[in-house]
Design a protein around this nucleic acid. Structure first.
Lengths: 338, 338
DNA sequence: GTGTACTTGTGTATCGTTAAACAATGCGTT
DNA sequence: AACGCATTGTTTAACGATACACAAGTACAC
């Protein structure tokens, strides 16, 4: 590319300025440089060299804890990414979705990523990938959790929200139950009474369990009496199966608090299939205020994943201050009765 | 980082080998280097410098013609990205989603992207961004179209598929109609008889129009008599409105071929609302074989966006040969009658 | 004791840019 | 005429790493 400068009869700096600060160079020289570039088929400054010299890449890395494809299958993750993408597009930044395969070379891959900052989708307390990211020293924003020194956190107050919606769905219940996300990355399906919230290493799961516990206790129930069904994934089909299991057991629940609207929809289907009337015989609550929640009339915690994605991106690029907590609200619908 | 080598008492090359070819260096030296790196807080080789020196970035660029957020809103685009992501994850590549805002600096931004190759989501014949990409000389794979010298193409045979499904939906019809995607990037909504397929600069739209024309003519209709309703976007709500307009007009269609299942679902809703019985009074066909198509019993063209995404990625990384055409098939359901 | 091969460490050159400081020129002002 | 100032071009020195070639040491066979 020094060739371009040579052909144009100017110095390389003049060529460089032509691309970076066109005002810095005379119209004449600029034209000569562009003509030379054209005739040599020079495609403009090399991105890698530029990144190296400038010290920034113009791209923002997003790490999805699960498989890479997960991002495009979970509508919540998709909304979140849309929010991140919105900010990236507005600022002309690229958005690099980083592979995390679960193999032990994960840290390496993350370390090799040419990005200026990282956004990490909700993960577990001890996730080694997060450690690897923090070790790079680049700006890191964690969505959901865990909180870490050196990383910013963007999340709603899951415990408070769970307590609030628990207050609704458990109201007047004799036998509440909880249908939840995986506790840890093992993602083992379990159905057990009074699972200790501390057992969950996903902070989001943990905080919500705490919130539901708060609500149950406030309603006069002992947590040890309350069945917690832990899914292996966020999925309506699995939720339906687990809900059917709960409803078919002795002393079935008359209130189920789920951690997503997909799960709640599964519960609704199970109830429908078993002839259990909602909300008369079973109160149901979801989370996220997804489209399915309004379709089925599910009481839910409304939060905007898209806004949270935007918030993460803004914090990551250094615009936008980190808020203490993102907003949420309760949307009461028919599934929790009158 | 030469500091690391110095502290470890070895040459920089030894340090470099420690990270890249651990076998190339003795266990002892490796330990010294890693210890030194640890104590200096050195996070490993800088990705930009590495890219510069190596000549590749380990990341694959994806360009979505629309706004960046579009990717996460259109389920077809999402499936496609999931396919790309799958291949990236398997090979340890990053996936960079590039911003294209529509401003005239797009070419610049694309040129600045630190990626090894590009995948371009279906766009128009004259898209300047595609030109900018081709000008970089990097491997480029176009999904859908347009075909270009210097770019590989991954697509189904849209014309043949449209002709095939047109044969079904137009069978026995006295008054066929087409509900289609935008013709060009202006994205103007139009309802007109016999729109010349050549007017469409989106090759996907154009080829499908040709296919429907083939089918209509084969069924004995003059293309000039057939109403084509062009949507401004792929959206069930807009499709429903347009379908209602068609069905409410004088000489309403008794067969509507749509270009997506979302659109077809909109048509079904409009018919339902207007009391038009499907398929007795109105035959409907969609495209993509999305979930909604099986739910509503819509005859459709099945294609796997995910597989096409995988195909694009494989071609982009140089594994996997370009196929002449991706597979598709017709799924006949109730919406096109007996 | 010599030849061959393998292991391990190092020096050198270079990847393609850009930041920063400096020089040369022209122009309006006092 | 001398000065400040803006405009434009150039020089120099990195940015941080790796490919390659070469050298020194070790091991083994004949």
């Amino acid at each position: 590319m020094a060739q371009v400068a040579e052909l144009a009869g100017v110095s390389v700096m003049t060529a460089s300025y032509t691309y970076n600060k066109p005002g810095r160079v005379s119209t004449e020289s600029r034209a000569k440089v562009l003509a030379a570039a054209e005739s040599l088929g020079y495609p403009g400054p090399d991105p890698s060299a530029r990144s190296l010299r400038r010290g920034r890449t113009g791209s923002l890395g997003v790490v999805l804890g699960e498989s890479l494809t997960y991002a495009f299958e979970d509508p919540q993750a998709a909304s979140f990414l849309a929010g991140v993408a919105e900010v990236c597009a507005a600022r002309g930044l690229g958005m690099t979705i980083l592979p995390v395969t679960g193999a032990d070379d994960d840290g390496v891959r993350v370390r090799e990523a040419a990005v200026d900052s990282f956004i990490v989708w909700t993960t577990t307390d001890e996730d080694p990938v997060l450690d690897a990211i923090l070790a790079t020293g680049r700006t890191t924003v964690v969505h959901g959790g865990p909180a870490r020194d050196g990383a910013k956190l963007v999340t709603i107050d899951n415990r408070a929200a769970a307590a609030a919606i628990g207050g609704l769905v458990f109201a007047g219940s004799r036998q509440p139950a909880v249908l939840g996300f995986p506790l840890d990355r093992e993602r083992i399906q379990r159905v057990e009474r009074g699972i200790d919230p501390h057992a969950a290493t996903y902070p989001v799961t943990r905080e919500r369990l705490f919130g539901y516990r708060d609500a149950a206790q406030a309603a006069g129930h002992a947590w040890a009496d309350i069945t917690v069904a832990v899914c292996s994934t966020n999925n309506a089909v699995e939720a339906e199966a687990l809900a059917a299991q709960l409803l078919g057991s002795a002393g079935p629940p008359d209130a189920i608090a789920a951690m997503s609207d997909e799960q709640a929809a599964g519960v609704m289907r199970a109830a429908d299939r078993l002839g259990v009337r909602v909300p008369l015989e079973l109160a149901v609550s979801g989370w996220d205020d997804a489209a399915v929640a309004s379709q089925l009339g599910i009481t839910t915690v409304a939060q905007s994943m898209r806004d949270q994605g935007k918030a993460c991106a803004l914090v990551a690029v250094g615009a936008g201050r980190q808020r203490t907590a993102e907003p949420w609200s309760i949307v009461a619908r028919a599934s929790t009765g009158g």
